[in-house]
Amino acid sequence: MNPTPSDAQVAALNRRIVLAARPEGAPRLSDFRVETGPVPEPAHGEVLLQTLALSLDPYMRNLMDPVGPGYAPPVALGETMVGGTVSRVVASRHPDLRPGGLVLANAGWQDFTLSDGSDLLPLDSGSAPALPPSLSLGALGMPGFTAHVGLLDLAQPRPGETVVVAAATGAVGANVGQLARLHGARAVGVAGGADKCRHAVQVLGFDACIDRHAPDFAQRLAQACAQGIDVYFENVGGAVLDAVLPLLNPGARVPVCGFIAHYNGPMEGASATDQRPALLATVLQKRVRLQGFIVLDHYGERFEHLRRFRERMHRWIEEGRVHAQEHVVDGLLQAPQGLIDLLAGRHLGKTVVRVAEA
């Protein structure tokens, strides 16, 4: 990344981080570039937003490719990296939005942006002051809602069933396991390393967590799921999926939310064996329901479904029934390294960038 002015020097400027090059494999710092320009002024019906917190998510890697994932266009070279934000209204020519209010927005990787208000969710009403606003990018936002939709709306686990989720200490997986437990199911996590597995069990309350790096990973997973797997929340793919397939029970449900093991291209150590016959045979013979979903489809008119979810999740967090873990990256200019580290599995919980003080 190119040298940039300090925060004090850019007080009257808008910094933005743009896509400078298409990654080949894992992203590198040279794939990003920092640009500065004037702070825009709102026209009639618009608001000027200042970014307070920026969400970093695995899907951003897909948007850096020349062809997007289908549900969203790719980021063009030279354009601002996209991302959800908690933003403050600093100037308003909009009849319903006042300066000083906090909103859930899609400002992307920059200090300031304009909005006509149609894509904003005000956070002032119904938000507990004791909870950090940045939780609206994690447990109270898209990752938490993704877990809720995939697990409770689509998979519908029953008490006593076994739910398995990989990336169990990540933004989505941590919520999947905790929601499964809240609804009476067994939660078995898969994570990368002993420390993450301890966190899943001791802090998040999983019944068990298996280290995917263990040489006997498949055997350990089978032992932890002695009665088979009723729900597999798929967000990783790769070797985890290979180990899960033979353990699926008849009638198992597999909500597919992502496959991060494949986002950077061919997996390290990937087998050349074609796994499609095994997958299709399992789906057929065990009558498995395999269902992909995009959480944006479930927000509802004017975020109504998201609002109702936020009310429930607020209560669960306040009651201590859900632990909302954040990994905070300080400063907008650290966002590229933050995304690189996130994709490499170096974070616990939801990764957010603190861009300005709330």
Rank of each mutant, 00 (worst) to 15 (best):
R98M: 14
T80W: 11
F112S: 00
V103G: 03
A91T: 01
S115Q: 02
G117S: 07
L104F: 15
N106C: 13
D116L: 00
D116Q: 03
S87R: 08
G78F: 07
E79I: 09
A91W: 13
A107C: 15
V86Y: 11
L102Y: 14
W109L: 05
D116E: 03
T85G: 00
L104W: 15
R93S: 06
A107M: 12
P99N: 02
G78Q: 04
L104E: 03
R98C: 11
V86L: 11
G84S: 15
D96V: 07
T113L: 10
L104N: 06
T113Y: 10
G100A: 10
P95K: 15
M81C: 00
D111A: 14
R93G: 05
G78V: 06
M81E: 01
R88L: 01
T113A: 15
V103H: 07
G108L: 13
T80C: 13
G84L: 14
L104V: 05
L102S: 03
T85R: 00
T113R: 08
G117F: 13
S87N: 10
S92M: 08
L114N: 01
M81I: 07
G101V: 04
R98N: 08
A76F: 12
E79W: 12
T113M: 13
Q110W: 12
A105K: 01
D111I: 00
G101C: 05
F112P: 04
G83F: 13
W109D: 01
A107Y: 09
A76S: 13
P99G: 00
H94V: 07
Q110F: 13
V86S: 04
G83N: 10
V82L: 15
R93M: 04
G100Y: 08
L77M: 12
P99M: 04
G117T: 00
S115A: 11
S115N: 00
A107W: 06
L102T: 08
T80Y: 13
D96S: 15
R93C: 03
F112G: 03
M81P: 01
V90T: 05
A105S: 12
V103L: 07
N106M: 15
M81D: 00
S87T: 06
S92W: 14
G78M: 01
N106E: 15
A105T: 07
P99L: 06
R93T: 03
L97H: 01
L97N: 04
L102C: 10
R88Q: 10
T85Y: 11
V89Q: 04
M81A: 00
R88W: 09
S92H: 12
L104D: 02
A107V: 14
S87M: 11
G100C: 08
L104I: 04
G83Q: 06
H94W: 13
W109A: 02
G84I: 11
T80F: 12
G117E: 02
V90L: 02
G108E: 14
P99R: 03
R98T: 15
L114M: 02
V86P: 07
R88G: 04
A105C: 06
G108H: 12
D116A: 05
H94N: 05
H94I: 10
E79C: 10
T80I: 11
Q110K: 12
L102P: 01
Q110L: 14
F112I: 02
V89K: 08
G117Q: 05
E79L: 09
V82F: 12
A76Y: 11
A76G: 08
G83A: 07
G101K: 02
L97S: 02
P99K: 00
D111G: 08
G83M: 10
G101Y: 04
G101Q: 08
R88N: 03
T85Q: 03
W109P: 04
E79M: 11
